[in-house]
Design a binder for these strands. Sequence first.
DNA 1: ATGGCTGATAGGATCAGA
Length: 261
Amino acid sequence: MKIATWNVNSLKVRLQHVIDWLKESQTDVLCLQELKLPNEKFPGAELEAAGYRSWFAGQKTYNGVGILVRDGLVVDEATVVRNIPGFEDPQQRMIATTIGDVRVVSAYFPNGQAPGTEKFAYKLDWLNAMHDWLAQEMQRYPKLALLGDYNIAPEDRDVHDPKAWEGQNLVSPEERAQFARLIELGFVDAFRQFEQPEKTFTWWDYRMFAFRRNAGLRIDHILLSPALAPLCKSVEVDKTPRKWEQPSDHTPVIAQLDVAS
DNA sequence: ATGGCTGATAGGATCAGA
């Protein structure tokens, strides 16, 4: 089973990219972030025609997450969860479902703006709530995969220019400590289980020719629970869609799991 | 140098992203 994550920065604008990439990559389960559309505008019929069923939590203008599942995979409808249980939030940033015996979570972590701001405080609150919920979720579902735009670059090697970024939003010690807390739950950064090219990133600013200069960050991740991590056979960042016309600023990360699909 | 792009909402500038 191939699972992937992609912040598409508007599913309306990127629908054809998603459909083309699904076909090209042969992905079975695609977690999406930043749909930027209300539920009534979700392009379910177009994705169905491409061979995928969709679960999503959208809202107007901002945020919004979804999980696309290839036809034929068994999804347990009764286990779908939208947003973090117990964490009141109008922002739609998390959806979870169960495919076979694999629990899949698609998450759009808050950006945070800058350390010290209200939005940064919200980011830390959200991360705390997510951490506590995931601790329980891992007990319920040993095979747990957390995919998404984390808006955290865990280490300096995930940053094109660590000096310039030192202490900034997305790399600050507080955020990295939160990422480390997820690792302490037992999660494994699937990407780092394998040898990877130097300076592999998943996001590049639209401005200043950042992609051309590879001035990016690795902020989109796939974390796997202890029971699932050993079943992961490869992880790669696929830069191709970032080269397409009118791309998302993020590019997909894909993992091959040794799980029946 | 807080600029530089892009998308959504709106029907022009502003917010938000990272």
